[in-house]
């Protein structure tokens, strides 16, 4: 069973066109407060978690087949070089193949000790960032944009690794800002660090 969770503080209507285009028969959930990011300590989208029949996490959060090839995108044409596009599609296919193998045979499920070791650790700064983000979204929803933005800015300062906090705040400020010049500047500032750390299959 696939469960897709839209981290979408503007609400379901903002995600509806994508969901309807997908014509999916699985759950398409709307998470306006980013509860799933809070519970599972996520930092980006898309991230995936594999959960077995007992309700046990057998693969903690990881990049769901996405790669960093987009960082070499030609921003004028929004296109990738053919080699980068091919590598990106190959990585996505490899990840989807791994998911299918797990469903059929159990392959790629991690032993409990390894799964526990890979769980991302919540710090007190991250916990505070989540609370401030929750408050910021509420304030935005209730017409208190300046206060909300201040809370979300502080959340992003406390948890700079969270792209979901920064990008959601940017989107609430202005649609499109989450993938605008400031986003690309932040991506460039990563240097040698990954935007999408490869899943270790």
């Amino acid at each position: 069973m696939v469960v897709a969770v839209a981290e979408e503080s503007r609400g379901g209507d903002h995600a509806r066109s994508w969901i309807e285009a997908a014509k999916s028969d699985y759950w398409q959930l709307i998470d306006t407060d980013h509860l799933v990011s809070d519970l599972y300590n996520l930092v980006n989208v898309p991230q995936a978690i594999w959960i077995d029949e007992r309700g046990i996490v057998v693969r903690p959060p990881e990049s769901a087949g996405s790669t960093d090839h987009f960082r070499r995108m030609d921003l004028a044409t929004r296109t990738l070089a053919p080699d980068d596009m091919a590598a990106r599609l190959a990585a996505r296919q490899a990840y989807l193949d791994a998911v299918r193998a797990w469903v059929r045979t159990g392959k790629h499920a991690l032993p409990a000790v390894d799964a526990a070791a890979r769980q991302p650790r919540v710090t007190s700064e991250i916990a505070e960032a989540r609370a401030r983000f929750r408050l910021g979204v509420w304030l935005r929803r209730h017409g208190r944009a300046a206060e909300g933005d201040a809370e979300m800015a502080e959340a992003s300062r406390l948890h700079p690794e969270s792209w979901t906090i920064w990008r959601q705040a940017a989107d609430l400020d202005e649609v499109g800002k989450a993938s605008g010049p400031q986003f690309w500047a932040r991506v460039k500032a990563l240097g040698d660090k990954h935007y999408y750390p490869p899943a270790r299959l």
């Binding site: 069973m1 696939v2 469960v3 897709a4 969770v5 839209a6 981290e7 979408e8 503007r10 379901g12 903002h14 995600a15 509806r16 994508w18 969901i19 759950w27 398409q28 959930l29 709307i30 998470d31 799933v36 990011s37 996520l42 989208v45 898309p46 991230q47 995936a48 978690i49 594999w50 959960i51 077995d52 029949e53 007992r54 309700g55 769901a64 998911v99 797990w102 469903v103 979901t164 990008r167 959601q168 940017a170 989107d171 649609v175 989450a178 993938s179």
Partner: peptide, 25 residues
């Protein structure tokens, strides 16, 4: 869900779940 129907993860016990996040932004 997108139609406002509440869905609870634990309702899926007994099935493998591939849960993935995404966003329009």
């Amino acid at each position: 869900d997108i139609d406002g129907v509440p869905r609870t993860l634990s309702q899926l016990r007994g099935r493998k779940v591939f849960m993935a996040t995404w966003a329009s932004w």
